[in-house]
Design a protein around this nucleic acid. Structure first.
Lengths: 221, 221, 221, 221
DNA sequence: CATGAATGAGTGTTCATTCAT
DNA sequence: CATGAATGAACACTCATTCAT
């Protein structure tokens, strides 16, 4: 009952730190982790707060509702994605097949391999519950992404490297395995044994190789 | 079969001629629809019951819990998928490129285009919350499916039609756009405008064409 | 730890009684009690449920929200009030002073003295938080009530018993002490000592006497 | 008073020339407004602080809790009310009917019409949740107020102007419409259309006229 | 067997109150 | 003294599950 006269630093767990600037970011990161890991519904607001090192109340200090938090997570992580690869296209000077291969590898390295790729899985999983977000994703990510690939294909055709193809569907055929890879990584990959494991780099290399061979006018090499 | 001559209310009999043995099936169908459309968490047990035309209590008479209902939905629909295409491979006698193309088209017609494809979306969306199901799906669907494709590829290589390739990853590259198509159909497709719409048959045709061209030793014809 | 082999009737508290018909009424009554006693905000939904002998969930089975419960309580109890005194006016044949006195006494006996009068206090206390209800009360209770009194005054004037007066304000002057009585009963009365207590019947008698004397052309008797 | 010749930001000084001693008063005023307008529970502490132009923390620097703030608001405003009309009675020399009428008009002008009258509404609305305040109000306001009116009535009777009446209840009958007027002003008045509006001065004049006529021995004039 | 009224643990959200700065 | 970021107890409401009928 009597306090020990120990001089030990009793550093309290709850420091009530004050750092308004950092909080939203910390919360968004925690939320991204949990939403990706467990899905929107299975993630409790308090969990997010705790993982971010704050109390439940603090979460609602920065985001008016769980739904808004979710939307913020999506917007935050999509912003980075958009228009990163566009610059590659402009400066590249080699054969289009190499450009296409390079861009796919870059996409994986810069997005697919990162935690942020979880939001693609998230959007697709929760699309029906958040149609507004689905449309947002469609317009802000899918459309620009498709457009980018379309321009690469057009470049190949214009330069006489690629056969003329149904641009619209070919674009999706090129992107589909990339999206698949992200979905896989965030769903079945953690559950399936090492035997069935997919190595992303090899997978993309193989996909790129097949695509380019299929597109080239003269697949001689 | 013969009507009783009693004056008792006979109206009821007509309204519900539902055979009781069909109950579980009707519940599973209703559940599949709703789980696919809204996800596991966002689907309420009562909704399923109502759509199946029974009361809430009846649902729990056949399935001990919502979770078990979910698992049953998955197991039920997985059964249909497995081992349908195997027979095609045995009897087919033409070039492997045509076989591959044919099998992809059949897969879409018999599975992808049906409501049952929703369980692929379901599994992938809920994998982290139901790892047991994910593993089940992996073993019962993914592994046999990949095995099937692998054998087709092997056939092409053995017959000297296809180049020798990294079988493991090529198999996934071939399947990825199919899975993508299913996910797309059950997530973003309902939200995106007609302009960005994907026509499954064309998409698969284009995919198959590119794959086969990429695989063939002599892609002349 | 071991159960006694007593044969005593263990009648369980939670009988899970099934009586859908009665529930809304029971809940409304419990809610009326508590809202009147503690106000809208200070009354917890679960309290209402418990007092009605059901669980929290059951309350929301019958009323979609606490606010709707509140509105239902108001509507339920106001329905009785309206248009009860109208009939008196039609059949009465004596002097208008007596009619007025009689109606005031009846109003107290049939409404003021009952638990339902608490909703008048409720409305007035919560008017700013439920403007919709305030308007409802204004239109459904205040307006018809004033109209009734106005007709009584007009009768007195038409028959040459009362002086011609400012009808609009006189009506309110007549009703004000009645409303006051209800407010008093549900606010300060429970707190003030017996010395300051107001006897409703005497209060109304005195009020009626003064009013009638003030209205009569020839206050001789 | 003289500006420093420094180049330092001087803008701040102008914006907030608020003297610190005035804080509690400003908080009480803001609180009175909000409590009257929205009730105790529906008024958030931060709202009060914001309206008073200070931060949330400052409020709790001056008042240990929301409840104490509420009590302070009541006590503060009750002080003004008490013992204002007593002096009138002493010096007035005319007929008691005129005195009574005059006092009622004065009460409205000096209390009823002011924001302070809101506390009467407040007390009555929250009496059950703050019985201590109710008793306080009863003793400090109601009892002295009643006593004052009683003395006026007694004066009228003693001077042979008024009939002998039941003093206790008559006093309340006289005060009731005044209290009603205050309640009305702070509850239904803001919601009801102009048609049903009550003009306080006319209302009080009519009430006074009827009272005096009802009390006078010879209501001839 | 089937029903649907009833339950209560669980979750999102609010807000009075605290305290490091 | 003043601030406002942080807290956490409290409450409205949901929904899977139970069980008397």
């Amino acid at each position: 009952m009597s306090k020990p006269i120990s001089a030990a630093p009793v550093l309290e767990a709850h420091k009530r730190e004050r750092r308004k600037e950092a909080r939203p970011g910390e919360l968004l990161e925690a939320a991204l982790d949990l939403f990706v890991e467990k899905g929107y519904a299975a993630t409790r607001a308090e969990e997010v707060a705790v993982r971010a090192g704050v109390s439940k109340g603090t979460l609602f200090l920065y985001f008016p509702s769980k739904e808004e938090l979710f939307k913020a997570v999506v917007r935050e992580n999509l912003a980075r994605t958009v228009s990163e690869g566009a610059s590659e296209l402009e400066v590249f000077d080699g054969p289009t097949g190499e450009l296409l291969t390079h861009m796919m590898q870059q996409w994986w390295a810069r997005y697919g391999a990162t935690k942020a790729s979880g939001i693609s899985k998230l959007i697709i999983s929760e699309a029906s519950n958040f149609p507004e977000l689905a449309r947002f994703y469609q317009e802000e990510v899918v459309v620009p992404g498709t457009e980018l690939v379309r321009r690469v294909l057009q470049r190949g055709i214009d330069r006489g490297e690629f056969r003329p193809v149904d641009l619209h569907h070919t674009v999706h055929v090129i992107m589909a395995p990339l999206i698949f890879l992200v979905m896989w990584k965030h769903s079945l990959a953690p559950c399936c044994g090492a035997a069935a494991a997919i190595d992303p780099e090899t997978f993309i290399a193989q996909h790129a190789d097949l695509m380019v061979r299929g597109l080239l006018k003269e697949p001689n090499a």
